[in-house]
């Protein structure tokens, strides 16, 4: 069992949802992103989702696109994700890497998996890889004991829910709405139904992402999900800050609010 899976089990035992915080590595730079990830952990995030910036992030909204462009312009490399993962493992924080598939393919699926395992990462979230296309990754993740998190969406049929979750390990990522990443005023009505349908076909933890930005939303989603995933709202803390210290402060304030949210759901 990976560190991420253990953490999700521990949260479940505590009767609450886990808080999963996303930040892209390399924004504003490598050191700054690692500091921000550690600040999230200190303020109450249970699991860190380490994003790898990609030139064509078609599942991401404007905030994460912007951060990815800045990170790439600053020379961020795929290997920086392993550096960040190792830095998190050093402080005992479980992490999972979120990456578009071509970055894995280019490095070599086996090599990527070996590097990630060596850095202490628990697994991968793959927004543009469906299990049907994932043969090589299924084998490599088995060899290295890594979690593989595929996405389900409100449009997924019952057959797709069954086949996708059968290929997942660690947890299932339930996209709350049809659309891309980014804060929304309300989390889609579809999310709760999707989690319920997903639970009918799997015992894995089901974590909900896309659109969660406030403590109130975290509490609401935490009522029915095993994990609450927050991304763009955290990235925005860094984007909107006048300097790094303020960015870290904003991160701590928001994470505290979100952590309070998942602890007051049930």
């Amino acid at each position: 069992m990976t560190a991420v899976a253990q953490t999700l089990a521990a949260c479940r035992a505590q009767g609450r949802a886990a808080l999963i915080g996303y930040l892209p590595v390399g924004y504003p730079d490598l050191a700054g992103s690692v500091d921000a990830m550690r600040a999230m952990v200190e303020a109450g995030v249970d699991i860190v989702e380490v994003g790898v910036p990609y030139s064509d992030p078609l599942m991401d909204g404007p905030v994460i696109q912007h951060a990815a462009e800045v990170a790439l312009a600053g020379g961020t490399k795929v290997t920086d994700a392993f550096t960040a993962t190792a830095a998190l493992a050093e402080v005992g924080a479980p992490s999972v890497v979120m990456t578009y598939w071509n970055l894995v393919l280019r490095r070599g699926v086996e090599r990527f998996a070996a590097d990630l395992a060596a850095a202490g990462g628990s697994g991968l979230i793959t927004p543009d890889l469906i299990p049907d296309e994932a043969g090589e990754w299924l084998a490599a993740s088995d060899r290295h004991g890594l979690d593989r998190v595929f996405l389900v969406a409100p449009s997924s049929t019952t057959e797709r829910l069954a086949s996708v979750t059968a290929a997942c390990r660690g947890f299932v990522y339930a996209a709350s709405t049809m659309g891309v990443t980014g804060a929304r005023t309300s989390v889609g009505q579809a999310a709760e139904g999707l989690v319920r349908h997903t639970r009918e076909v799997t015992d894995l933890p089901v974590c909900v992402g896309l659109g969660v930005s406030t403590g109130a939303q975290a509490r609401q989603v935490g009522e029915y999900a095993d994990g609450v995933i927050v991304g763009s709202a955290l990235v925005r803390c860094l984007v909107d800050a006048v300097d790094r210290a303020e960015g870290l402060d904003r991160i701590r304030v928001l994470v505290s609010e979100l952590a309070e949210g998942v602890r007051s759901s049930r």
């Binding site: 543009d128 890889l129 469906i130 296309e133 996405l151 409100p154 449009s155 049929t157 049809m178």
Partner: peptide, 12 residues
Amino acid sequence: GGRFVPEALIPA
């Protein structure tokens, strides 16, 4: 070839 897209698009 293949289908390297978000799961949300598979039904469409």
